[in-house]
Amino acid sequence: MAKEGEKTPFWLYVIEDPMLLLFMGVTIYAVFYLLWGVMELSNLPPIPEDLKKSILGR
């Protein structure tokens, strides 16, 4: 709710709607957490060659 004659700012719409806040609270967390997981998994290094050589002996 803005003052009379004033345009209601966007963030007021957002914080006025509890269902939207609930949705955003779950969705934003889920998206970032998933992205973090995907980033971690895709950046895993392989087992170092030196280690493999020391165990396999070749």
Partner: peptide, 20 residues
């Protein structure tokens, strides 16, 4: 520390370790 591996590679390392 976590490494990407596969069943074949890990089994080979495991077998060599056990044998040693």
């Amino acid at each position: 520390t976590t490494y990407k591996t596969n069943v074949h590679e890990f089994n080979a390392l495991y077998d060599a370790f056990v044998e040693k």
